[in-house]
């Protein structure tokens, strides 16, 4: 199976590899896995609490080239979007952009799952009762 040029580009020059401070209230972390192949993907976002815009995104994926490319692309796409806009990214958008073959669709699903999981984690943090100091201000 041959990878598309875009996949190879993301694979060779992955964007936004790394991590953000997991404990920060502005950061949402999504850790997801594909049972089909045993791969794992971590995607983190940092959200501006005034505007709900995703200002930073990082990922680290242990998996196939398509999973790495999908998550790399996902971090590029979510940056600058609001949380709600980011939620509208579908795995098929990724499939199209990267020209993934049918057997690699689950890799793109992983990326969509990761975005959702990161946003879900961030939302949960926003709902959690604020520390007393923050409330007092």
């Amino acid at each position: 199976m041959s990878y598309s040029d875009k996949v190879i580009d993301h694979y060779n020059n992955p964007r936004n590899v790394g991590s953000l401070d997991k404990s920060s209230t502005d950061v949402g972390t999504g850790l997801v896995g594909a049972p089909e192949c045993g791969d794992v993907m971590k995607l983190q976002i940092k959200v501006n609490r005034e505007t709900n815009v995703i200002e930073e995104a990082k990922f680290k994926t242990f998996g196939c080239g398509s999973a790495i490319a999908s998550s790399s692309l996902a971090t590029e796409w979510v940056k600058g979007k609001t949380v709600d806009e980011a939620l509208s990214i579908k795995n098929m958008d990724i499939v199209k952009e990267l020209s993934l073959p049918p057997v690699k669709i689950h890799c793109s699903v992983l990326a969509e799952d990761a975005i959702r999981a990161a946003i879900g984690d961030w939302k949960k943090k926003q709902e959690a009762p604020k520390p007393v100091a923050a409330e007092a201000k």
Binding site: L31, V32, G33, P35, G38, V40, K42, K60, F62, L87, D113, R116, A117, I119, G120, D121
Partner: peptide, 17 residues
């Protein structure tokens, strides 16, 4: 609009990672 329930438990994913 929710978060996908992962097929494998989070602590195992954490360990794998």
């Amino acid at each position: 609009g929710g978060v996908k329930k992962q097929i494998v438990p989070p602590d195992l994913l954490e360990e794998v990672f």
